[in-house]
Simulated scan of single mutants.
Amino acid sequence: MSINYVLNKIGLIMIPILGWNLIVFIPKIILKKNENGYFEAVLGSLIQKGFFFQFWFLGALIIMLFLVPILNKIMKSSIKLYVIVLIIFLIISWLIDLYNHFSGAIPLQKNVIQTFRVWTWISYYMSGGLIGNLIKKINFIDFKKQLNYFSVVLTVLTIIYSIYNAAWISNPFAEYNYDNILIFIWIVTIFLTCISTTKFSKHSTKIIESISKYSFGIYIVHVIALKIFEKVFVFDGIFINLITIIGVFLISWLITFVISKIPYVNKLVIF
């Protein structure tokens, strides 16, 4: 978790960011439709602007990587201090969500682009770190049955919450739910349920490995696939939205798979 580790990771992240922006920038140069410079486009993509606005996630990840040595040092020096810091950020996140639901105002997060919603990313990042630490001391497999039941219940509650929440906070975007306590507990429970399962069939293992290997690329190209679907479908119901989610995922996976087989170019989709 040294500074060299951080810089190496950031360097790997910047390769697809620079590459994808270059792919879009060159045609604009040829067609003389470039409004901004190349590096301006790159920086813009990291703060949720431009064609690759989804790179805000990579911008947030870069910020978190710079915090990694600090968070790692806190954990190694005092796990109690680590938990206290985590609780502080969790409280901040949950209070923001409560304000959104009961104030009647627009979500507070709307005033901060996703790249810089650090309180949220620290909450999830540190929670993962704590779980990783607890795995050494607690055998979650012993609670597999309880976790399975709890996951099912929380999943049902999350679906019900999601259906009504768009009207409750007057905004349909999922990004304003990351600070919600129900969503947070649901995600953590799903994660614990997954790691408590130790045996997979060979077929399931291949599917999991494939999704994991291409997930970085799928995330990058999913916006392109979504734009294709927007030309064909009108998103006005749960069924068509479900079809869109599945379709966008499959198209994104296919595009990523093809690109991953091309030498050098595969750096654009495999991290």
Rank of each mutant, 00 (worst) to 15 (best):
L250I: 08
F116K: 05
K267Y: 15
D97L: 03
F271Y: 09
L12F: 14
F140Y: 06
G217Q: 01
N34A: 12
I208D: 05
K227A: 04
N8L: 14
F191D: 03
L154N: 01
F116H: 04
I183A: 04
P172A: 02
I207M: 12
I224R: 10
I207L: 14
S77D: 13
I183K: 08
T198V: 14
N165M: 15
L65R: 07
W94C: 13
S252K: 05
F89R: 08
I15T: 07
I30T: 07
L130N: 03
N148I: 12
K227D: 06
L22V: 01
P263M: 02
V234W: 02
N171E: 02
Y214Q: 09
A167K: 01
W168A: 03
S212A: 11
S2C: 09
P172M: 00
N180H: 04
I74L: 15
L7C: 02
F184W: 11
G11R: 03
Y161R: 15
S123C: 06
K136A: 07
F66C: 15
F53G: 05
I62C: 03
L98Q: 09
F51R: 13
W121E: 11
F191P: 01
V68N: 02
V24S: 15
F55S: 06
F140S: 10
I91N: 14
P27Y: 07
I87G: 07
K267W: 15
I211P: 02
L154C: 09
I141M: 03
E230F: 04
K213W: 02
L31T: 07
K76D: 07
I17T: 05
S215E: 10
D97N: 13
A166L: 06
E209F: 07
L157K: 08
I74N: 11
S215I: 15
V265L: 13
I91L: 14
F143M: 01
Y161Q: 15
N177D: 07
F191M: 11
F89N: 14
I113W: 02
Y99D: 06
F200I: 09
V42N: 01
G59H: 03
I70T: 12
L81R: 07
A225N: 01
P263Y: 05
F271R: 02
G128D: 07
A167T: 02
F53H: 11
I207Y: 09
I15L: 12
W253E: 06
T198S: 14
T189Y: 07
T193V: 06
K76R: 13
W168H: 08
T197F: 08
